[in-house]
Write a protein that binds this DNA or RNA. Sequence first.
DNA 1: TTGTAGGCGTTATCAC
DNA 2: GTGATAACGCCTACAA
Lengths: 324, 324
Amino acid sequence: MTTIKDVASFANVSVATVSRVLNNKGNVKRETKLQVEKAIKYLNYSPNDLARNLFTGNSKMIALLIPDITNPFFPELASSIESAANEHGYTLILCNTAGNQSKELTYLSALRRKCVDGIVLVSNTLDSKQILESGIPTVVLDRETDFDITSITVNNYEGGKQAVRFLKDIGCDKIAHIAGSDNISSTKNRKKGYIEMIKEDPWIIENLIVPGGYSAKESFKSTIKILTTHPDINGIFASNDVMAVGVLEAVKSLDISVPKDLAIIGFDGIELGEITTPTITTMSQPITAMGRKAVDLLIKKMQYKNDEISSEVFQVELIKREST
Amino acid sequence: MTTIKDVASFANVSVATVSRVLNNKGNVKRETKLQVEKAIKYLNYSPNDLARNLFTGNSKMIALLIPDITNPFFPELASSIESAANEHGYTLILCNTAGNQSKELTYLSALRRKCVDGIVLVSNTLDSKQILESGIPTVVLDRETDFDITSITVNNYEGGKQAVRFLKDIGCDKIAHIAGSDNISSTKNRKKGYIEMIKEDPWIIENLIVPGGYSAKESFKSTIKILTTHPDINGIFASNDVMAVGVLEAVKSLDISVPKDLAIIGFDGIELGEITTPTITTMSQPITAMGRKAVDLLIKKMQYKNDEISSEVFQVELIKREST
DNA sequence: TTGTAGGCGTTATCAC
DNA sequence: GTGATAACGCCTACAA
């Protein structure tokens, strides 16, 4: 590896001078500057960030921890976060935690050792104490936390209500819910919204809430089951779009016509919902905006080292498609 | 930040001793070792990898460059690469290049400065000279390159032939191809396989190859177009599964029955193909195995610093599903 | 068994 | 305008 010393001796100057032209800091004569630049080019030199960061104390890296990279929602999120990070001169480290607490903890300590400057975190298992312990500026995304920590979320509860209200508006009078995990605040709140909207309905006693396991396959199975026991269901609210796809496939496999006999609405607004037949109505989250906002807040936190909590709640938006 | 010095003075020993217990190297009395460990725990100390790596010269990080994180094929790949890397003690940096050469180059130099130990690269724009220039051990994945560099691929040409042969076997006698880009070696070779299989057929002159733009939406449009001009097409080979989904939706929207009137086959074997209705027959790549192999070869390269080229070609496998 | 000291590649503070 | 030199936090000869 060629170092700043090599460049210095090649250009017949001191390392200090090389450093100056490297960082455009301090005064250096035009001529010597050119000399140095020639040397840099000739030796194909590029500075060692490890050494640089060791000195400056930051790494210009931020990490994103997500629970499942194969759920399309997260790549879309990751994509916007990455662009935003890059625009601010940060490299993004993407970490796939599988929602596994021990993996999350392992990552957190590894990242701390690597001196990442900040973390964007999507986690259901970590509490704010564990997060704060790492000492790294962190923004929590997509999951509500206690108030100790900045978070970016959407109005899941209201969104859940809106989804069910819409199904009712278009005539559904028996609505099932394919639920996410109760350990995940976002899906839990969507479920609460669902319950709030149907709690006066006579059929509430039948309990039309079934778990969808956060995947299309699980959700497929659950849908088959609930529809065979309750064939008069004419509306289904799935807690996210991936599960809504599972619902759709299940409904079609039972030869029930969508949306004529049964309407389906999802949540998230991922692209997948636009390529099914029929396309799936959804409560859309502003995924890109949320990612960018997370980076914005994180960078403010890192730069001003303020501990101010400035959480932000985005609004979901009903996008009507063919499944309703 | 607490450093090794703090630990040393707290435990009343020298930094050397602390370092020894940290790395389990050299001899240190049981008692002092316990002292040090207590200090470490008490001070919540963790070593600074920047400093450590600056000394050792490696970062224990490898990077994965992929062209499109929102295409489900790549997250599946990334997922397996990440696990494999983690198992070997490496942290994965995921970089989304958007297939954009300048972004790739920017990443390459940034990664070099960050002293990443190795790179797994999925790229169509970079030639081996540009790759080798970074000086970082690299394995190319999913794309054929010239022979200067280790690569992991599948037999795309044979796979393409197999796909078309299968369509013929089940009775298709007019087969269209939704193609990927000719700039991408994998899809180019799949297309070659298609051409090889149909070049004797009388309808070859009609040119049933249309571009699918690597996305479901593009592929949807292309399919509509080709089917309206050639309504007697009864088989379609899509160059990947995402495009096959587009094909499927297009065909269904034209009220053509799948597979009765038209059979569809894709390529890749991603999970998406299992949740459509009908599910999509595909030439499946051993995605997980390929990812793991890439990491294996990369680690060998890094450890033994050998320049040996040890490319590997995996075999695709026909998975019959409902679309044929 | 333990401590001292030099060096990894940078940057920044002083002199000159 | 330029050059020594002391940090940054860690590891490892070498000495004791």
